[in-house]
Simulated scan of single mutants.
Amino acid sequence: MSGQLQTSLRRQRGMGYWGWLMVVAAFGFVFTCVAKMAPAYLDASYVDQALRALAENPRVRNMTRGEIEQEMSRFFTLNNVRGEPTKAVRVIPGTDGMLVSVAYELRQPLIYNVDVIMKFNKQLNIAKTDLCCEPLVDLEQLRKRD
Rank of each mutant, 00 (worst) to 15 (best):
Q49M: 12
Q12P: 01
M98R: 13
L21P: 02
F27Q: 01
R13K: 15
V60Q: 04
T86W: 02
D96L: 03
M72F: 03
E134F: 12
N113W: 03
R61V: 10
A40C: 07
F120C: 03
Y104Q: 08
C33M: 14
R74Q: 12
D43K: 09
D48P: 00
L136G: 15
N57M: 05
Y41H: 04
S45Y: 10
C133A: 10
L42M: 11
P58V: 10
K119V: 13
Y46Q: 14
V91G: 01
G28L: 10
G28R: 05
S101Y: 02
L136W: 09
K128C: 04
E69F: 02
R10Q: 14
Y41F: 13
E84V: 13
E56F: 06
P58G: 07
Q70L: 12
T32Q: 10
V23L: 13
A103I: 00
V89N: 05
V24T: 12
V60I: 11
E134C: 10
T7I: 05
R74L: 12
E134K: 15
L124A: 02
R145V: 12
L51Y: 04
G28P: 04
V24K: 00
G83S: 02
F75M: 06
D130S: 15
Y46V: 04
R13C: 09
T32F: 03
C132Y: 05
F27S: 12
D130P: 08
T95P: 05
T77F: 09
F120V: 13
I117M: 12
A50T: 03
